[in-house]
Write a protein that binds this DNA or RNA. Sequence first.
DNA 1: TCTGGGGTCCTAGGACCC
DNA 2: TCTGGGGTCCTAGGACCC
Length: 420
Amino acid sequence: MYALVDCNNFYVSCERLFRPELNGKAVVVLSNNDGCIISRSAEAKAMGIKMASPYFQVREHVDRGDLHVFSSNYALYGDLSARVMEVLDLVSPQVEVYSIDEAFLNLQGMERMIDLDRYGQEVKAQVFQWTGLPVCVGIAPTKTLAKLANYAAKHFPQSLGVVNLSKPGWRERLLQRTPVEEVWGVGRRSAVKLKIDGIHTAEDLANSDAETMRSRYSVVLERTILELRGVSCIGFEGAPEARQQILCSRTFSSRITRRQPLEEAVREYAVRAAEKLRQDQQVASHMAVSIRTNPNAQFEPRYRNTASVKLPTPTSDSRILIKQAVLLLRTIYKSGYRYMKAGVVLSELQPAGNYQSDMFCEDLQSGKSVSLMQTLDAINQRYPRGVTFAGQGVTQDWAMQRKFLSPRYTSNWQELPKVR
DNA sequence: TCTGGGGTCCTAGGACCC
DNA sequence: TCTGGGGTCCTAGGACCC
């Protein structure tokens, strides 16, 4: 038995926590660079504002004053997320953090000892009391059904935010009422195809022939079908697996037309990726750099390209990664384009200090390199951007735009909320 | 004018081995 | 007219998640 605890409109709820006057108002949070809408309050949804729609399409509402808008503030959301997870750790024996705003609880064996509906209500009340953030809870024998239960808890107010599908009859009724595209694991592409095949509801999907669906769609969809029938195929993962790749990419605040600022950006992303790598105590042996123009632009030349390299020996040294990133960029850079975005991907990751070195190459991960990077990280942790590489650029005019950024209320002494 | 960022898993097809 | 059978590994691309 699983519970899925999911925060309601998480980013919007985080912003409202420190701006309570916005409760009951239409609020949205934008993606990086103030591009798209990625979180909406119930009121914003009711206005017909769609998920992922570009900001400029709803700017009218903002100008009229009937919509409040925030830039993404990940320092704030990350900190509040950690607090929610801490509460869940206290109320549940096993927690699997699934994303920034949701977690699965493993309730195996508990159903015989406690009333699950009441437990769900207690979890919800506890998170709200200790963090101020509203959550909904879905309880069911498989993860896919727990996701569905959570969907129901959010959509049917009479549920009071908790739905338990282990009660007889509930699962069938919910499957009948749920459109197939709301099922976890059914994306846009499959939903279109499923409807052509006459499968419109979660119930239709659960009743379809799993074998046939596997060959017509995929083994992933077959698992979803079994999960909807109550056969658990997706296991509980208490301890998170080591990451397989680290990606750092950003859209620029405005288009870049020269090589030099593009190189700055790529160095910056390589440094960011290397920092994450060291944080995970891993090293990488593969790197890719990609650049692209605006794929949505109708009337200007489009270009996108990626170059990659296998590193001679695995490393997490920023200096080496910067150098490689720039070399890769120079192989794909073409002048005459308006570049919109660049990215760096590190892959083939392994635990640091536990890899096969190359007999014919000098080991890049020498003792001096390790202690230099440790020093760098220690300084920058205390004083963000305290030490940078000159090539990362000083003014970084291309850096992303966040015009509606709220203070880092919980993670920066200078930005603590003031009570008058 | 203006459209995010960071991940995972699966599959098909090519290249290769004996 | 007619050219085997059984594998592995790698990569790119698609689909999905939040």
